[in-house]
């Protein structure tokens, strides 16, 4: 039985890496006594595959994972068992049984949605910068490469940028960007475009999607029996 599930990564586990998160979920599956399958070969690994990796420090309500089990059980039973064995900050919210030949999450997810919240110190800054980004064709950022830093224009991969709240103390915006192997925007790279007053803004991943024409589908919607 193959299960696809959506889970959250909130405080305080936003401070652990993707690898740490993966290990934590694997151990919770084992504690829950769920009959996860293992890969063959020298170093058997549980058949648990995650979607797009989330950078350390970012919270999320839209993490996805596929798991394969030796036998079947109810989805409610699965959610109860796994949630009873997870540390605070990680919660499985929904799940469904999917066909075993469903394309892996990594290969299909191509859109990510984020909410960035922080303090900009003054009114009007957020919307003016948002407008400037939307009006321009190029937003150049630098990424560390193997030998030297690479300059990349991320603007073509920003599909929407929206002011959610603009105030003296807190401002927030939502963004929809390209993610995956065909092009990728890190939310920090967009956040860097704004002059946050105190420290770093909080970034939250609110959705991962698969684009089909003009529609955005959830990874749970694309897999059907």
């Amino acid at each position: 039985m193959k299960i696809r599930a959506r889970f959250t990564k909130e405080e305080p586990v936003r401070f652990i890496s993707h690898l740490d998160l993966a290990r934590t979920v694997e151990r919770a599956v084992r504690r829950a006594g769920l009959p996860v399958l293992y890969s063959q070969g020298f170093n058997p690994r549980p058949k648990i595959a995650f979607g797009s990796a989330l950078a350390l420090g970012i919270t999320s309500s839209a993490e996805y994972v596929d798991m394969e089990f030796a036998n079947g059980f109810g989805i409610d039973e699965f959610l109860r068992a796994i949630n009873a064995n997870l540390p605070p900050g990680i919660r499985f919210k929904e799940a469904k049984a999917i066909p075993s030949n469903t394309a892996p999450l990594m290969s299909v997810i191509d859109r990510a949605q984020y909410v960035i919240t922080g303090d900009l110190g003054q009114d009007g800054v957020l919307s003016s910068i948002v407008q400037r980004i939307l009006d321009s064709d190029e937003i150049w950022i630098e990424r560390p490469g193997k030998k030297q830093r690479r300059r990349i224009n991320i603007r073509p991969w920003i599909f929407s940028l929206e002011v959610l709240e603009e105030g003296l103390e807190a401002s927030s915006l939502s963004l929809l960007v390209q993610t995956g192997s065909s092009g990728n925007v890190r939310p920090e790279e967009v956040a860097e475009q704004f002059p946050w007053a105190a420290g770093q803004p909080l970034i939250h991943r609110s959705g991962l999607f698969i684009a089909q024409g003009s529609r955005l589908l959830s990874p749970l919607d694309v897999a059907h029996h």
Binding site: P12, F15, T24, P88
Partner: peptide
């Protein structure tokens, strides 16, 4: 490695 300081482990 801020995970060193967060506690709340299983």
């Amino acid at each position: 490695k801020p995970g060193r300081y967060i506690g709340n482990e299983w």
